[in-house]
């Protein structure tokens, strides 16, 4: 069974890399360019996991995660934060918003897939 993942990142490069990394792992990937767009794409999509950037225009990662968690059906959807920053307070904020885990950019494709498989089962 292939995983269905929604990835939200405002950098096209990162989106391309995710496409490459997850595509070759047979993961069905849906992409969005910022938090707002992410919520739009999420509407009508039932992803097994969500990957989100933090620094994004319109709606940042914290806001996006909170909004997703606010939807009843996504209360337990795993959300991985993809970020260049590893500062503990950022993690704490991400966790407080409802993040499941975090991956530091630049990510290692293998480990990302492994982490996705772990949180999404």
């Amino acid at each position: 069974m292939s995983l269905k993942v929604l990835a939200v990142d405002d950098s096209r490069t990162i989106r391309d890399m995710l496409k490459l990394a997850l595509g070759s792992a047979g993961i069905e990937l849906h992409l969005a360019e910022d938090g707002m767009h992410g919520l739009e794409v999420l509407d009508g999509l039932e992803p097994d996991a969500i990957i989100s950037d933090i620094n994004m225009p319109r709606l940042d990662g914290f806001g996006f995660i909170e909004a997703v968690r606010g939807q009843d059906k996504h209360r337990a959807t795993p959300i991985l934060v993809l970020t260049t920053e590893s500062a503990p307070e950022l993690k704490a904020r991400a966790r407080a918003a409802g993040a499941t885990g975090w991956i530091v950019k630049p990510f290692d494709p293998g480990k990302l897939v492994k982490a996705l498989n772990m949180v999404a089962g």
Partner: peptide, 18 residues
């Protein structure tokens, strides 16, 4: 200010990947 920050930040992020 955020636009400035994000532009620099995104360049950093992508550059790291390569």
């Amino acid at each position: 200010i955020n636009v400035v920050f994000r532009a620099v930040h995104s360049i950093k992020g992508g550059a790291g990947a390569f």
